[in-house]
């Protein structure tokens, strides 16, 4: 019980910090949703909608919007759990400041993850509001889309932060972003069904957490989600997030006690 209370104290640090730097995230949280939906959904949509069988059988903006909602969660999760984590160990050393107080490594880790979760929820809610504004919501289940984004985000942020706690330099981070995050963004069903990919890549896409998240989020917003699929997606993402949290607890403890 106290561990939870401690996690909220570490969370409070991140909120205080965020009060100072929130301007920097305006772009990723509020402006990106509008720009991406306008350019891809509406602009590119005019080309895609001419197709005899558009993806998902709906207007392209309606198809792509939930995908972007979930993909944004992945992007926020992965940037927030790389440099800021390393920075708190190496540059500002704020984790060490916390560890000199009653807060333990697990609470320090959990507090940071809670903060990332908040960032994801805010971004997803903004996305959902914009989607609602242009009539892209097909089912009342859409209200759970931010929760799907949150779960997807944690499936990224927890394992990545667990890794970042072991990293000695930030050189691997841009490689992760460019060789894992960007390809997932482009090929895991955000913009078009993965069935369009060559078979090998298609199966690779099914293995990515983003595909599960996007399929889940899109199913909720468009109201096309089957119970079995929903269960499968949630289970897959939850296992990843839980594993990340368990490993992260270990790597944070090891790094802070070293």
């Amino acid at each position: 019980m106290t561990a939870v209370a401690y996690a909220f104290r570490s969370y409070e640090f991140w909120l205080a910090y965020y009060r100072r730097v929130w301007r920097g995230s305006i772009v990723s949280s509020f402006v990106n949703p509008v720009f991406y939906l306008a350019a891809v959904g509406i602009g590119l949509g005019t080309l895609v909608n001419k197709s005899a069988s558009p993806p998902g059988g709906v207007t392209y903006s309606h198809y792509v919007a939930p995908g972007l909602l979930v993909a944004a969660a992945m992007q926020i999760a992965s940037t927030e759990s790389t440099w800021p984590v390393m920075g708190s160990f190496k540059w500002t050393r704020s984790y060490y400041a916390m560890s000199a107080t009653p807060l333990g490594p697990a609470s320090i880790f959990a507090g940071h993850q809670l903060f990332i979760a908040t960032r994801i929820l805010v971004s997803a809610t903004v996305y959902l509001a914009v989607i609602a504004a242009f009539g892209g919501i097909h089912s009342w289940l859409a209200m759970f889309a931010p929760a799907a984004a949150l779960l997807t985000g944690l499936a990224f942020s927890a394992p990545i932060a667990a890794y970042a706690a072991t990293a000695e330099s930030d050189s691997a981070f841009s490689a992760i972003l460019r060789f894992a995050i960007v390809p997932m963004f482009l090929f895991s069903g955000t913009f078009f069904p993965v069935t369009r990919l060559p078979t090998v890549l298609e199966w690779a896409a099914y293995a990515t957490p983003l595909w599960h998240g996007v399929d889940l989020g899109r199913g909720l917003v468009l109201g096309t989600l089957g119970a079995a699929a929903a269960l499968g997606h949630v289970a897959y993402l939850a296992v990843l997030a839980a594993a990340g949290l368990a490993v992260g607890r270990m790597t944070y403890t090891r790094r802070l006690q070293r």
Binding site: F13, A16, Y17, R20, V21, T92, R93, S94, Y96, A97, A100
Partner: peptide
């Protein structure tokens, strides 16, 4: 109370 060898102050605050 701990005063570590390297300062752990927060530069943004």
């Amino acid at each position: 109370g701990v005063v570590p060898q390297l300062d752990t102050l927060d530069f943004e605050l």
